[in-house]
Computed example of a mutant assay.
Amino acid sequence: MKIVNRRWINKAAVAAAMAFVVMGAAMSSAAAQEKITVFAAASMKNALDAANKAWSAEAGKEVTASYAASSALAKQIESGAPADVFISADLDWMKYVSDKKLVKEDTKSNWLGNRIVLVAPKENAKPVDIKQGFDLAGLLNGGKLAMGAPDSVPAGKYGKAALEKLGTWASVEKSVAGAESVRAALALVSRGEAPYGIVYATDAAADPGVAVVGTFPENSHAPIIYPIAILSESKAPDAAAYLEYLKSAKAAPFFEKEGFTVLK
C-alpha cells in the first residue's frame, strides 16, 4: 500500500494557495492599470461623461471619473489618492499639485475656458443688468446667494473677485451660502433654497430648473481656464492617448455643446 505524506500535501496546498493569491493580485494590478481614473472639476461632469463614453467605445478602455471641487481633488491627490488625470477649474489648484511635483509637466496645458453667470429658479427668472454697483443685495431681499466657497472653490473665487470688482461684494458677503462645489451651489438655486446663485455658464445649461439672468463681464475677473495634466504616479499605459483624445477636434463638440470654449 502506498503511503501518502500528509505534511508534504499540506505544504503543497499552502504553496499553491499563495501562488494563486499572488497571481490574483498581479491580475488585479494589471486591470487597474488598464483603467483610466480621472479627477475632474464638478462643472465638467456632463461634457466629460459624454466624451468618456465615446472614447471607451472607440478605444475599448474603461474610464472612471470622480467629480468634486478642484480644491478637494487637489488635496486628495496630495494625500495619495490613485488617479491618472487631473482637470482643474482654475490655474491655482493645478499649480498647487504641480508645485508638489505631482503632475507630469510635459503633459500640462490650458485646455478649456468658461464664463460665470447669475442664475435664478426658472419660474422666478427676470433679467439682471450686471454692471458696476448693481444692487444684488436688493435682489436677494434677505435670501441667500449660492456660490462655491469663495476662498477655495474656483467658481466661488471667480464670483467673489467679480463682485469685488463691481463694488457689490461688501453688501452681500454675509448673505453668501458657500457650497462645497459649483454643482452644490447650483442645486440650492434649482431647489428654490436660494433666490440667486453664481455658477459657470456650463452648469446653468445642465440644469433645467434654473435660468441665466445675467452674465458677468469678462473684465470683472481673471480668465476662467481649465488646465489638464497626467499625474506623476499614473501607471495607465493609455493615459497619454486618452489626454490626446480629449484635446482633439473629435472630442471638442462634447465640450462646446455644454458651453465650454476650447482654447487654442
Rank of each mutant, 00 (worst) to 15 (best):
P154S: 15
Y200T: 11
P237R: 11
A30E: 05
A149P: 10
A42C: 07
D49V: 10
A47P: 14
R6K: 10
L166A: 10
M44N: 14
A185R: 10
A26R: 11
A251G: 13
W93C: 02
G197Q: 08
G167Y: 01
A40H: 09
A211C: 03
D135Y: 05
S234T: 02
L231F: 02
M23V: 12
I225N: 06
F20Y: 04
D99R: 03
A42N: 12
L163V: 00
A179Q: 15
A68N: 15
E193C: 11
T37A: 12
P195V: 04
W93N: 12
K160C: 00
Y245L: 13
G192M: 00
K61C: 02
K165N: 07
D238L: 02
E233W: 04
A184N: 12
L48W: 07
V103Q: 03
A81G: 11
E164Q: 09
D92S: 14
A240N: 12
P227R: 11
I198S: 03
E164D: 08
G178F: 12
S88K: 03
S181R: 01
A161E: 15
F254K: 10
A57R: 10
G197I: 12
G80P: 00
K108Y: 03
A25C: 10
A25D: 04
T64M: 05
L166I: 09
Y226G: 09
I130R: 07
S70M: 12
A206M: 00
S171I: 01
S181D: 10
I228L: 14
S109W: 01
S234R: 07
S190E: 08
K100N: 13
Q76K: 09
K104G: 02
A161R: 04
V22D: 02
L136A: 01
A162K: 13
P127S: 13
V14Q: 10
N52W: 06
L140F: 02
L186Y: 07
E244I: 10
V212Q: 11
N10Q: 06
A149Y: 09
S248M: 04
V21T: 11
A206C: 01
V22Q: 02
A184V: 12
N46P: 14
G60R: 11
S175L: 14
S109P: 04
K108Q: 12
K45N: 13
A120L: 03
L188E: 14
A137G: 00
Y200L: 15
A50V: 15
A240T: 14
L139Y: 00
Y158N: 01
N124R: 01
L48N: 06
A194V: 00
L118H: 01
